[in-house]
Structure formats: C-alpha cells, structure tokens
Amino acid sequence: METITTNPSYKLELSSSPHIHSRWSTKHAMWFVVSALLPSVISAVIFFGIYQLIVIGVSVLFSIITEAAIKKIRKKEITVTDGSAVITGLLLGLVLPPNFSLSATALGAIFSIAVGKEIFGGLGYNIFNPALVGRAFLQAAYPVSMTTWKNPNYAVDTVTSATPLSAFKFDKIFTQTENLFLGNVSGSIGETSAIAILIGGIFLVAIGIVNYRIPLSIILGVVIFGGIFWIIDPYKYPSPLFQLLAGGFLFGTFFMATDWVTSPITSKGMWIYGFCISLIIIMIRLFGGLPEGVMYAILIMNSVVPLINRYTRSRIFGERR
C-alpha cells in the first residue's frame, strides 16, 4: 500500500468516460479544416486580387489576438493553438465582399470571437457559428460597404457588378453556369468559386471531419424545394442548379452549417437541420426582401439545435416514448 501512495507512477487514476481516445484530437481536425479552406483562399486571390489576402490575414490575426486576450483576462488557459480562432478568422475573411475595409474586418473578427464565442464560455459552448455572428454584425453595422461588390478580374460583363443572385432577383438577369462554377462572378471573395469550395468540402467529408448528412440534406432540400418552384414557373424562379451554385450557398453548406459545435449531434437531427436550412434559404431567396439568405438560415437553425438534439436523441432500449 505504501508504494502506491508514495510513488506517483502507481497512483490510481479516476476519470469519467470516454476512456478510449481517438488519435485525432480537436486540434488535428481544426487544422484539416484550415487546409480545406485553402482552395477558396486561392480562388479569392485569383479572382479579386492579392489585397484579399491582407483582409483574410487581418481577420485571422485579430481573431487570434482577441481569443488570447480574453483567455488572459479571464485567467484561463490560452488555447489559440487549437486552431478554432484561425478557422473563425478565415471563414469571416472569406465571406466578406472584395476590397473590404481593414478596420471593419478587424472589428468583425473581434466581435466574432468576443461576442460570438467567448461570451458563452469559449469553444464548445457557443450557440451560433462565430464567423456568421461576425458577418451578421458587419452586415448590420456597415450595410453599404457589405453590399458593395466588385467585378472579378476576368469579368465578361463589365457594366454591372451585381451579384448573380441580386441580378436575378431585381433585374431577372441570368449568370452563365460555367462562370458560377469557376467563381468568375461578383460576390463575397471566398464564396464565388464553386469548384474551390467543392475540393475543400469533399476532402472534409471524405476524411470524416464533416458528416455527409448535413451538406447532403441541405443540397437535397434546395434541389427539391427550389425544383418545385422552378417546375411551377421556370421564368419567374431560377433553376435548382443556379440555386446551388450562386451566392454563399456551397460555402455555407460545407463550412458554416457543419460546424461541430453549432450543428446537431444525432443523425436524424442532422437531416432535420439540413432540410430546415434549405427551406429557409429558398424562402428568403424567392420571397424575401434580400437576395441571399444562407447566413440567416444557418443562424436561425443554429438557435434551435439544442431543441433538435433534445427531441431526436436516441432512446435507451426499452424506454417508453
């Protein structure tokens, strides 16, 4: 008995489950997400110029600084190396319009981390996706500069710099599908290039960091709900393919809606979550005052995730309903 109490290596360890650990920690997963975002960063630079790299850099930098500062003030362990602040900064930078002001970017990043995440207690406790909180804040704070778009570097149409969605909504102008696919259209810097997002997104799904159910259900939902309206009146409502490729849809689907903390944990819950997001997106895009609704759709559904988790949790075998 004496050896156990005196020698630390024989100390009895008491801990609650889980006892088996994956060789992948949160840290690994976070850095995989960061690498999956790189194609979108590259497409942002190709289509909107090298300045966008500075915007993304400022966003990432201020996210890290804010997180470290708040942890320090609250006398908690500084956890910036887990990469979650980097991801928030990257995501926020990529959903901003081209040539966005640096001071506003910094403000958005500070708001994302401070109010979107740390106020709830840090990573794992936040209700809303921090990057989207930051974007919603910037959208409300600077509505004019947040909707001032710029034509991409290889633009065919030089007259208007409207995004494909607002061009369709307000002026009924269609954008060519191949331009939408490559990203050669105006819009938020990381959101325009479907192919870059798909490379990163499919990589994340393939290595299992992103559960396939969420993106699949959102895409299916948009195809179904968007398709119904398209069949009813193909001149008034855009085709499902346009709905999928235009605006921030793919970026939101693969990188925003799938955030581990703010999406449901049960399989059934993921399907419900995805379908509801797609329904809200279609509603806002077709009948709302705004041309794009991905951000608000995800934020709205984030707020009901605890409810979804509660009602879809698997029951203990034999338990009554």
């Binding site: 506003a104 409300a140 704070a141 500069s145």
Partner: peptide, 12 residues
C-alpha cells in the same frame, strides 16, 4: 470613423 449603423438599429 465610419458610423456603425447597427448601434442605432434594434440589434445594437
């Protein structure tokens, strides 16, 4: 200093 519109909106 560019005024932050959100502060005079309900959200602010």
């Amino acid at each position: 200093f560019e005024p932050m519109l959100i502060m005079i909106l309900p959200a602010g």
